[in-house]
Design a protein around this nucleic acid. Structure first.
Lengths: 348, 348
DNA sequence: TGCCGATGCAGAAACGCCTTCTCGCCATTC
DNA sequence: GAATGGCGAGAAGGCGTTTCTGCATCGGCA
């Protein structure tokens, strides 16, 4: 004998629909619908009865059908390349959390940066009538922006600006300038920059800010460019920067991973000590920067803050679809640790 | 004058439907549908005409409506806690990539491990008629498994086993035993284990394998348990292991992050050198393990392989929905680097 | 060359599931 | 007793797929 003879455990093998719930609760199909719509006119007693029946049957409103009628879903697309790397992994985590908290459902399109891959991602997201698209890597072609606009799908770009799209950026150039000022306040005259060949707006801005400020103050900057903005790229940049006899006294790295690669290379292949003989500043302040080995002075870029701003931008865009593109610019602040000291005389 | 007077650029502000494409191409609505269905009976000429019209209008099949009829979507849910941490970030990246490659669309539910959070995640995924759910963290309650089964939604659990669900696991216990054998082959008699208080099946298996093998061979194991299985947890474990005078000669760490914390603590707060005075073995082989600072000997767990197996399991489950639960067990292999040497006499 | 059968393509209708709108009824209150 | 408000029931709509039916064309055979 089963625990209850109410429902024989036949293989349903399909989702229960509102009709079944209605039948079980002895109400109409639309009553069930209203019971699940906040603010609809159902008596408390009936709603309770419906909810009990729904619970028992394991009913769940079909968001596909709901979205079909609403002409939009609660899905939000995150388009990203290499979501496992450095700062980006934290940004993806923060965004998914913020979106879920908002009631949205994040789709992560892990893909390349080429135009056709981005277009394919957009097609997928259009197919599911995504509420919005957030681009974390790569530059959407103008057709992408145009198509999103035509279909009324908000498009938010992070870490770069795109004509016609909303974006969240940080003050990369200002941070680059500040890095230069910090070094110069220490009396260094030979500066170095560790960047990459594959340049993005973000890295270009950091480089420009640093070099321009250094040039304006009469300092020389030696450039090192690794392949990618990761650990290996940092090693490669270090190889270039510390190959000759006149190496820099202080290096600004395009991000923390590059700084780690550079530091490790310097420690292993040169006799320079950090920070006594060489100061290093990174960018991002990922958790590894605080590890004892690196104890890296770096610019903090809080992923939770950036995610919150992206979501806020999305809210505003949905409230005013026809408003001109919005540009959100966040500030960073330097986190002083052991790899580069700041003289007391220096004012931030 | 506009570039072409064909379409005045009015704000559509809605997605184009198959009806509009049909009108434009001068065919019926069902012809459009067939044109987008592979293998349907449409003449090549008509298909081409339809495709051209679709392209011009920016038409995209509504997957919401498609899923409504198919009673399932191509969405696959990934339920994960702290997707930014260590190995998990790589696993999430590998899974999203593998799923997209398969033609599925990954939804990432970044949430806690509590029962109610998991149930909420399941409701969301049921609502969108997700093709499958893959759980990366946390233990689904039995109601979760039962509901997934009733609704015919495949459920795949990674890194643990759950009654009634398919899973992919790795041989944690075997790896733990091998770590012990490696240490013993070096002649060490005082072993250490760096784990955490918050234990998961994964960490328990590694610990058990290591301790049992050591005990079986007459070696003593000192235990250190940090708070979480991350860098800080490794530091904390190190504090416990190296507090007294009789510290271990070799430590097996529950994962790489813990190993990094332990190594950094040892370097800073003791005079022990690695590997001369202390051997360390980690687990996961995340990219940081290969960094020069750590040069960590560790067990490789390839995220791409695990993702491929998870997807393969999904394929099999969809092919044979009624088949009993499948358990996939992957092997790891040790990657020998500088933090722990393996004597020539040792056979793997 | 003409006719019949077979085949293939196109269109119409129904279905899937939910939401919303409208209509009607009942209960409550003055 | 009548009017009003609130709740319930039924129907339509949103979009793509699938099935069924009809029509036309092609080929084969006499």
């Amino acid at each position: 004998m089963d625990s209850n003879g109410d429902d024989l455990p036949k293989k349903t093998q399909h989702y229960v629909s509102a009709v079944e719930v209605a039948r079980k609760a002895g109400v109409s199909r639309s009553a069930v619908s209203r019971a699940f719509t906040p603010g609809a006119s159902v008596s408390a007693k009936k709603r309770e009865k419906i909810m009990a029946a729904a619970e028992e049957l394991g009913y769940q409103v079909n968001d596909l059908a709901r979205g079909l009628l609403a002409r939009t879903s609660r899905l939000v697309g995150l388009v990203v390349t290499n979501p496992e790397l450095g700062y980006r992994s934290h940004l993806v985590a923060a965004l998914t959390k913020a979106l879920i908290h908002r009631g949205s459902v994040p789709i992560v399109i892990n893909t390349g940066r080429t135009e056709e891959e981005l277009v394919a991602a957009q097609k997928t997201l259009f197919g599911y009538r995504a509420e919005a698209t957030i681009i974390l890597s790569g530059s959407p072609p103008s057709s992408f922006v145009e198509l999103a606009r035509r279909n009324g799908q908000p498009l938010i770009v992070l870490g770069r600006s795109e004509t016609g799209a909303d974006d969240v950026n940080i003050d990369n150039e200002g941070a680059g300038r500040e890095a230069a000022r910090v070094f110069l306040a220490n009396g260094f005259t030979a500066l170095g920059f560790a960047g990459t060949i594959s340049r993005t707006p973000t890295t270009i801005e950091r480089e420009n800010g640093f070099c321009q400020e250094a040039a304006a103050r009469g300092a020389n900057v030696i450039m090192g460019h690794g392949g990618n903005s990761d650990y290996a790229g940092g090693q490669e940049a270090a190889r270039q920067l510390f190959a000759g006899s006149d190496h820099p006294q202080a290096v600004f790295c395009v991000n923390d991973l590059v700084a780690f690669g550079l530091i490790d290379h310097v420690r292993r292949h040169t006799s320079l000590r950090i920070p006594e003989d060489l100061s290093v500043i990174g960018f991002d302040d990922i958790p590894e920067a605080a590890w004892e080995t690196y104890n890296l002075t770096t610019f903090r870029q809080d992923p939770a803050v950036m995610a919150a701003h992206a979501v806020a931008l999305l809210d505003q865009r949905q409230a005013e679809p026809d408003r001109p593109p919005m540009h959100d610019r966040l500030n960073t602040h330097i986190v002083v640790r052991g790899s580069a000291r700041i003289p007391a005389s220096f004012k931030l």
